[in-house]
Write a protein that binds this DNA or RNA. Structure first.
Length: 555
RNA sequence: GCACCCGUAGCUCAAUUGGAUAGAGCAUCUGACUACGGAUCAGAAGGUUUGGAGUUCGAAUCUCUACGGGUGCACCA
């Protein structure tokens, strides 16, 4: 549609602008109007030009329309009109849409793919939970958003690396080892204290499970709280947690290509390189026995410590080194970070430092998602009824299934607080938005199945120009829009747009199904409708696959 | 106190990134196939987009301000 009109539009614009010596706008916005009465496509160029040409918008629009009418094929564009303050609306011939369907079916599982990211190396980092416990609902949102964004980029032709950054060094891990050791000791002596006050300790039930495995494997030999034994506890805990996290991810249909170990930044000397590099730039100084990063020289108000007086770096330093590594050594053109709202504070620091190191910070895009609250009967819940402990990601999948869980995490904009409605998730019915989409897909599959059972053959080609019913045209319009939606999602890095779109497709299909019979119609109509069914099915299936959700043939 | 995110129908959220009459789902009320899956469809009702000011042809969207909610402001990660 747009590609058909754009050349004519620029010709007409040139003709109008050049006498005034005004610049022809390089990008002409052609939009699909929200209101169908305004035609199939609409442009606001006349309004945007009003100032430069010093004429009123409607006047410009009038001459544009005249000029356009003499250029376009009137059997394709049936009407060009002016409306409102100076919008120009285009109406296409009714069979215009139907004629384009065959391309959709031909592309099949690839329909919706774009090439805009071709040759661009992208890295998406998500989940990145430290191996100190189980994944909870917040991680779930992060995982679903990150994985879906990675899918979106793949669909747009990017060369995508899915990455998990984890920290198995530092105090947290020591505390984890200590926690396990205490639980281990409790196994032999119930009087051992496990202080509820000690904030460093991990209290979850899984700590006891890990301790139990150590009892079975090592017996009593780890009782002495020396370095070696604590290390054994720590390693066992780390392995257990990490294996559990990976199992949860796998269940959610998520895999990472790279598990980036924070440790490696030290062993490879990247942290040292980074600090030397920063020192060369003159933004590092010593004070009170610690090493500071002069953020005030980079436009921020407060300087921050990057190496503590104890000699240990703060988290900021490896974060900077890590981002520098992604940009400078591994040469990613696009670095996407998926963070929870609690990480918001560190981002400007890291970005400023990365820029100081000479990298282009516009290559880094940070997606910050807000928190998740679980709601039931209008009240916030923290504990799982099933396990009696706080909800983990596995609990959600156990109760509601993987599809529902993933969908609920991405169906809202990332920047809004997410209310995860447990009542709604539980609902195996019309109310549940996931089933609405899946049902549409299953229903199409069912019609095609029934046709086969009745011995009706579905022809390879059909005269789709016969699809002229308003419900048919509405559905076709949406089907044809899919590639644009996929492309947009890559620009906004918002998975939600795809979910919203698929809902529209499903709704348009259900309406079409209600209004138009398929089996039993005259053969040419029936075949044309089969073609439409196949196209709609393709869009639903491909769209759901981007979201990481199954498209069932039966429900 | 400072910074960031958010405030849209009774509830949960959209709104093509500044466009035309602000749209969906749930909840409420009323209807619809002896036919391809009723997990569906149609209709009614529901709004001063938190208040106020500004920017312009045009504002839910941008700016300022007030109010309300969330998050973060360590030599923790």
């Amino acid at each position: 549609m747009k590609s058909y009109l754009t050349p004519f539009l620029s010709e007409a614009l040139t003709a109008i602008c050049s006498p005034f010596g005004a610049e022809v706008p390089s990008e002409i916005t052609l939009e699909i109007p929200r209101n169908a009465e305004h035609g199939d496509l609409s442009t606001n160029v006349a309004m945007t030009l009003a100032k430069a040409l010093k004429k009123n918008p409607r006047e410009i629009a009038t001459s544009l329309v005249e000029s356009l009418k003499s250029r376009v094929d009137a059997t394709i564009v049936t009407d060009i009109s002016i409306a409102g303050a100076g919008f120009i609306n285009f109406t296409f011939a009714k069979d215009f849409y139907g004629k384009r369907l065959s391309a959709v079916i031909a592309e099949g599982a690839k329909y919706g793919e774009n090439k805009q990211g071709s040759g661009v190396k992208a890295n998406v980092e998500y989940v990145s939970a430290n191996p100190t416990g189980l994944l909870h609902v917040g991680h779930g949102r992060n995982a679903a958003i990150g994985d879906t964004i990675a899918n979106i980029l793949v669909w747009n032709g990017y060369d995508v690396t899915r990455e998990y950054y984890f920290n198995n060094a530092g105090n947290q891990m020591n505390n984890l080892g200590r926690s396990v050791h205490l639980r281990y000791l409790q196994h032999f002596d119930a009087n051992v204290e496990f202080s509820e006050e000690d904030k460093g300790l991990y209290h979850g039930e899984y700590i006891k499970d890990i301790a139990q495995t150590l009892v079975v494997k090592h017996g009593e030999v780890l009782k002495e709280p020396n370095e070696a034994n604590l290390t054994t506890c720590r390693k066992a805990a780390e392995e257990w947690c990490f294996a559990t996290i990976r199992a949860t991810m796998k269940r959610m249909n998520i895999h990472h290509d790279v598990y980036f170990n924070e440790d490696s930044l030290y062993t490879d000397g990247k942290v040292n390189d980074t600090i030397e590099h920063l020192r060369d730039k003159g933004v590092v100084y010593e004070k009170d026995g610690a090493t500071w990063l002069a953020l005030s020289k980079m436009g921020m108000t407060d300087d921050r410590v990057i190496i503590k007086s104890s000699g240990e770096p703060t988290y900021r330093l490896p974060d900077i080194a890590y981002h520098h590594d992604k940009l400078s050594r591994r040469k990613f053109d696009l670095v996407v970070d998926i963070f929870g709202a609690d990480h918001i504070a560190t981002i400007p620091d890291v970005m400023a430092a990365v820029e100081t190191l000479g990298e282009d910070k516009s290559k880094v895009r940070v997606v910050i998602h807000q928190f998740v609250t679980l709601m039931k009967d209008g009240e916030q819940v923290k504990m799982s009824k099933r396990t009696g402990r706080s909800y983990t990601l596995d609990d959600l999948m156990e109760e509601f299934g993987e599809d529902v869980t993933r969908f609920f995490f991405i169906m809202r904009g990332v920047s809004t607080h997410l209310e995860f409605d447990l009542n709604l998730a539980e609902e195996q019915s019309e109310k549940n938005p996931v089933f609405y989409l899946q049902y549409a897909h299953a229903r199409i599959a069912s019609v095609l199945r029934t046709a086969e059972e009745r011995g009706v053959t579905i022809a390879a080609t059909a005269n789709t120009a016969l699809l002229l019913h308003p419900s048919e045209i509405d559905l076709i319009k949406l089907v044809l829009r899919f590639p644009e939606i996929v492309s947009r999602a890559a620009e906004t890095l918002e998975p939600q747009g795809i979910a919203e779109f698929l809902r529209d497709v499903a709704a348009a299909f259900h309406k079409f199904y209600h209004d138009c019979r398929i089996l039993g119609e005259a053969d040419d109509i029936m075949q044309a409708r089969f073609a439409l069914l196949n196209a709609a099915k393709t869009v639903l299936k491909n769209g759901l696959s981007i979201l990481g959700i199954s498209a069932p043939e039966k429900m």
